[in-house]
Design a protein around this nucleic acid. Sequence first.
DNA 1: CCAAAAGTGTTGCTTGTACACCCATGT
DNA 2: ACATGGGTGTACAAGCAACACTTTTGG
Lengths: 237, 237
Amino acid sequence: MEEEKAVLNLSKIYKQHPKHYVAVDCSIFGYEEGELKLLLYPRGFEPARGKWSLMGGFVQNNESLEEAARRILLQTTGLHDIFLEQAAAFSNPERDPGARVISMTFVALIRIDMHDKELVRENGAHWWTVTNLPLLIFDHEAMIQNALALLQQKAGINLIGKELLPDLFTMMQLKNLYEAIFQRSFDPGNFRKKVLSLDILERSSEKNTTESKKGAFYYRFNEADPGNRSERIVKFP
Amino acid sequence: MEEEKAVLNLSKIYKQHPKHYVAVDCSIFGYEEGELKLLLYPRGFEPARGKWSLMGGFVQNNESLEEAARRILLQTTGLHDIFLEQAAAFSNPERDPGARVISMTFVALIRIDMHDKELVRENGAHWWTVTNLPLLIFDHEAMIQNALALLQQKAGINLIGKELLPDLFTMMQLKNLYEAIFQRSFDPGNFRKKVLSLDILERSSEKNTTESKKGAFYYRFNEADPGNRSERIVKFP
DNA sequence: CCAAAAGTGTTGCTTGTACACCCATGT
DNA sequence: ACATGGGTGTACAAGCAACACTTTTGG
């Protein structure tokens, strides 16, 4: 009756408007050999053949943007439970020459040691060092710059590492990760004190003896930590 | 030939995927009488009649999300050149009972003294104090919480006020704005020193004599300031 | 004169940074 | 024994918060 009519009116309102392709593109960061890396896929067809692209895909009817991103991450890395955060929407009508596509970008952090290397190789993907990226399609260069800025901002407020490092890691490995993210060096002693003062790492009894003569204690993230703090950890340059 | 075929292939790829309604919803903040306020519109039809909503609309084919947001802000407030920033995407397939709509939210900051009050009244809109909001449709409550958090974050890093205050304002007016945004009080002396140390305000020769007996100098934003700094202005609680 | 806001100065605490210094050990 | 990274301590500077104090002027 009243309500039914209103719903009909409502759907009339919707029908006046155009629909759009909606995609998600993921900046997938990993950390390996002291370098911050980004997983990119080569484009095999024109236009922009030979250029590289973020992993992306189209959003289907029954899924949210986050769900679409997780589906794509699972398909390409074999990983569930990936750290994932919305970054920004890219919506210039001309951004994709093939069609008008609105793209939402995500930042994903994964542990390179845990992902499915076979699957990645099958897709022709490659881990690129963030300081030395190839030519990218469309506006993917801007997407990555935005993702890097977001990663810095996040790493400056919350201690990240759980998402990128192995379960056990040394203080120097964590420092190296932060140096890769911020592209600057930190004083070893001060870094240690600052990080430990946050009270979210616990020292394991084991030591890493491969990377130094004395041996360095392994740390792990305190499972109980909420992970959401507001104080700054590192000041930006 | 080769390229043409590729484009055809490409469009085949696109056509396999569904299209979606895409909307923008704007959290329009203003500042008046010492209160941070939000412009909301009443919903006149079912479902959710009587609840309030952010100002929003559908994205058309020839416009980016930002352009859509600006079009809607112009239509509803009469203002060009509004400060506008992407907030977050809300994309749960069930979020809008009328249809599957993906919504991108924006934060807009406007000067209440400059907007078209007639236009706003025509639309039945109302300025609500952010600490006392009415019932809202769908996920608009979450959108506003997100927008408020973003506003705090932004105000904590960049000195905002140019977008919300008149051209000339006293230090106490700026302090009151910050107190409204952060919902806490600041020490008058320390606030003054911190803000002036940023070197982005210039003191005018005029004084405000209506709000105090002694009279307080008016300040204005230094036109030449880039407006993008990375140091924190206020620490969050 | 006094209340009230404007504006400046002082002090103590916390935090960041630079750097000295001892420790453990593989070569 | 010594070079190397691990780990701790110290000393100085900067920033922040609390608050005392002075100025101005309307009632």
